[in-house]
């Protein structure tokens, strides 16, 4: 499978994402944000970073980037699209996913391991995941507190669009396991067709036991198994 990893000025997880994807068997290319054509790619990744410095609201400028038209088109045509960290923020800013990512409730940047559970397995990204275990995937963000209107939240819950929730290592979804104050411990969500995933933690960092975890690979392997 071919993956396009979009590089905005200020993106920094592009190399990590390419590294993780290629280890799993993707052919991955870095795509500079001035590109407007993403044909031929099965998976598009908006990786982490501080696009345009994110001095304004995170992702608020990146959504106007030339490449975003092609990203939107790719998703509307049913292509697989994942936004990680800053990529998730950009997808929310662009209205491709509902809700918004606010300042962490601690008001501080947080870099640490989180444990995620998935409840939704009929998506390309989570089809290979196991209901009965947690996934150790690190987070690294200052603005990751997911907030949505009650109508959006109800829609997400009813349509089974919640991809990941923060949990304890043993899988309990509790306030103590919530690292940033996200509503309903939400760590990642799908669009209604489930071809678009946005998540704050970094699966591309959980790609080797040498780095502490390889649980992130399960997402990429799920995608590959769709081919």
């Amino acid at each position: 499978m071919r993956a396009a990893v979009i590089v905005f000025p200020g993106t920094w997880s592009d190399s990590d994402t390419v590294w993780a994807l290629e280890r799993c068997g993707f052919k991955a290319d870095k795509i500079w944000h001035r590109t407007s054509d993403l044909t031929g790619y099965d998976l598009v990744v908006l990786p982490g970073g501080f696009s345009y410095g994110d001095y304004l609201r995170c992702g608020a400028i990146a959504r106007f980037s030339p490449v975003m038209g092609a990203v939107r088109m790719h998703a509307e045509n049913g292509g697989l699209l994942i936004g990680i960290c800053n990529g998730f923020q950009i997808l929310c800013e662009a209205g491709i996913l509902p809700g918004v990512l606010m300042r962490n409730s601690s008001l501080q940047f947080r870099c640490k391991d989180t444990y995620l559970i998935s409840e939704t397995f009929d998506s390309a990204f989570t089809s290979g995941l196991d209901r009965n275990r947690t996934y150790q995937i690190p987070m690294s963000h200052g603005e990751g507190r997911y907030v949505a209107s009650s109508a959006d939240l109800e829609m997400l819950e009813q349509n089974d669009q919640i991809a990941f929730r923060y949990a304890s290592q043993s899988g309990e979804v509790s306030p103590e396991a919530n690292p940033n104050g996200s509503i309903a411990n939400i760590a990642g969500i799908f669009n209604s067709q489930k071809n678009v995933l946005g998540m704050m933690p970094h699966p591309e960092r959980a790609c080797e036991m040498l780095l502490g975890s390889e649980d992130g690979n399960r997402i990429w392997e799920s995608v590959l198994s769709q081919a």
Binding site: F109, C111, P138, E208
Partner: peptide, 10 residues
């Protein structure tokens, strides 16, 4: 150190 990204670059 939790306030520093200590993992980027893998």
């Amino acid at each position: 150190y939790q306030q520093y990204d200590h993992q980027v670059l893998n």
